[in-house]
């Protein structure tokens, strides 16, 4: 998306008419699935000070006599249940349930930004912190003064007391959004950073200003 192709009224109109995110829940692995709720059920996401209290149970999947209950990560309303699969064997990744999650203003800004930014995601479920060099540059000048290049060691992943350097592999850009706090436990695939190509910075600022100003 470039500044030329951003049509703010259209984008905001889209979110005004349907201010929801539709979160698909897919089979975490192959197995026999059993649904634990009906369509239109209200569900809760994870909660607790450490995000340790699981959300509402959504489905149970059994592999080799080992049942596992999968819970919702987000709050909302169940908009779709693939009932035809109830009690059947499914492959990993099969779409099972969709949850309609009501978006807040901050989430709408983030959703639009994530279409513009390059998202750098967690390679594994682990705890993450910035490399020493990046952390000291953030401390001195702030994240948005930092330009990162492909190949830069930006993050250290800590898993089972083993530290692994993580190298940036996206387009060069400015460290615009940081989605974790150093030492946070982050699930695999969840964005850690949003990197903005320098030429898109003004577009990003426009998005934030416009949504903040116009969204109730």
């Amino acid at each position: 998306m470039s500044s030329d192709t951003i049509h703010f009224d259209e984008i905001l109109g889209k979110y005004r008419s349907d201010p929801y995110d539709y979160v698909d829940m897919c089979a975490v692995h192959a197995g026999e699935v059993r649904f634990l709720l009906e369509e239109e059920a209200e569900v809760q996401g994870v909660s607790g000070k450490w995000q340790h209290i699981p959300g509402s149970p959504i489905y149970e999947i059994t592999r080799e006599r080992n049942p596992k209950v999968i819970t919702s990560k987000t709050n909302g309303t169940v908009s779709f249940v693939n009932r035809d699969l109830d009690g059947k064997f499914v492959e990993a990744g099969t779409k099972l349930v969709t949850i309609r999650h009501p978006l807040k203003k901050k989430e709408i800004i983030e959703a639009i930004l994530q279409e513009v930014l390059y998202l750098f995601s967690a390679p594994e479920r682990a705890r993450y912190y910035f490399s020493m060099d990046i952390q000291s540059r953030i401390d001195q000048k702030g994240a948005r003064s930092i330009v990162i290049q492909p190949g830069d060691e930006i993050i250290t992943m800590s898993l089972m007391k083993r530290d692994t350097p993580v190298y940036y592999d996206g387009d060069p850009g400015i460290l615009h959004s940081i989605y974790f706090s150093p030492g946070d436990s982050v699930d695999q695939g969840v964005p850690l950073l949003g990197v903005c190509p320098e030429e898109k910075l003004s577009v990003v600022q426009k998005i934030i200003t416009r949504v903040k100003a116009e969204w109730e």
């Binding site: 607790g48 450490w50 340790h52 209290i53 682990a126 705890r127 898993l159 089972m160 007391k161």
Partner: peptide, 13 residues
């Protein structure tokens, strides 16, 4: 935890 809930940690000490 003391409130009866559980948490699983993969890093830390």
């Amino acid at each position: 935890l003391d409130d009866g809930s559980s948490i699983t940690e993969y890093s830390g000490e």
